[in-house]
Design a protein around this nucleic acid. Structure first.
Lengths: 190, 190
DNA sequence: CCTAAATGAGAACGATCGTTCTTCCAGTCT
DNA sequence: AGACTGGAAGAACGATCGTTCTCATTTAGG
């Protein structure tokens, strides 16, 4: 049953968190802005989330479902016909993503680099980035490629590198990455 | 004439800035820590640098000279015999770098992603990252490769991607990147 | 309907941030 | 000697941070 009623306070908070943390650093988004944006009382905010960290963790979880599994894997699987083409379609999705004017880099990478090594958020990002590699490894295995795990690690380098390039302003970074990705597939076929 | 005397206040500040900003986010390092670390009076700090931003800018400049041009280009040029080997040696340097226990990612990327798009520090990082590509393009040209500028953009994707992977914990990311780099050289030879 | 939970509005907290200001001292150059 | 410069030490500022608190109001369940 779909929720037709007005969004609850928690839903509003999560929606605002997704919007803000998607394109700005954790340290740059204050709790007050989070609260004002979701039109919620301060006490309500802290009833649902014991601390700011917990909202960020919830956001990261959401990001994985919406972005990693939805926008990327889902879309890539939908576009490509063969498993190999599904893999390469990742960079087609990236290409469109990079050309959006509200392009917002990758929160997993942003937060990973923003926090210190031991921080809970850092470790969460490492886990979520691992899931991306698992997703790629799955596609690589379906394509019958050799050593899917290693292949996914290399593939992920191309993904993250192109994202940083796009953050610098190179909107065509996905195409460059895709060329190298083709080469990578080739070398994992023999 | 070499400076044999005790380091001046400004030198101490810059040394501390290099140490702190190399491995921690700008927002994570307070001015007080910068001041305490360099054993300097508050007024002295602000006499040499009008604001915290200016110290970060000075640090980025320093980082380019020490790291980009010194550790990376200098070392890569020293190691490789042929121009192509000099290029590939970049990832040998990276490999050793990734295995250091005090590995500290790339401040240019960190700060680029930490600050908002329009910020002076963001723009400075974009410029410094451009210099890295110029350095790679120079080596590519010396190697007689086709379209050195485009090649450098692709190469840089491998560099940045592997750095992020190393920040996640994959100490062998440089080797993966090097394999793809070989493939990239191959495709720019024909 | 009534009760309990959820929410709203906002004051206030201690901590930390980047920055300014004042005061005093040590050396250097003229 | 005297003027000037660079530095040390630290109080104090306004702003913002994440968080806790009180209190009134609304909403939902039995």
């Amino acid at each position: 049953m779909t929720d037709v009623s007005a969004p609850t306070a928690k839903e509003r908070i999560l929606a605002t968190a997704y919007e803000l943390f998607s394109k700005r650093a954790v340290r740059d988004v204050g709790v007050d802005e989070l609260i004002r944006g979701s039109d919620v009382a301060i006490a309500t905010f802290y009833r649902h989330f014991p601390s700011k960290n917990d909202v960020v963790l919830a956001f990261l979880q959401m990001r994985e479902e919406v972005w990693t599994l939805g926008s990327i894997e889902g879309e890539a699987r939908r576009r490509g016909d063969t498993p190999e083409e599904k893999l390469l379609a990742i960079f087609d999705v990236f290409d469109e993503w990079f050309h959006r004017e509200d392009f917002e880099a990758c929160p997993f990478v942003n937060i990973l680099l923003e926090m210190k090594p031991g921080h809970p958020l850092t470790m969460a990002c490492v886990r979520h980035l691992e899931r991306i590699r698992e997703m790629v490894a799955g596609l690589a295995e379906e394509a019958g490629l050799r050593d899917p795990a290693k292949m996914a690690r290399s593939w992920h380098i191309l993904m993250k590198g192109s994202i940083v390039s796009a953050a610098e302003g190179d909107q065509d970074a996905a195409k460059l990455a895709q060329d190298m990705a083709r080469c990578l597939i080739q070398s994992h076929r023999g």
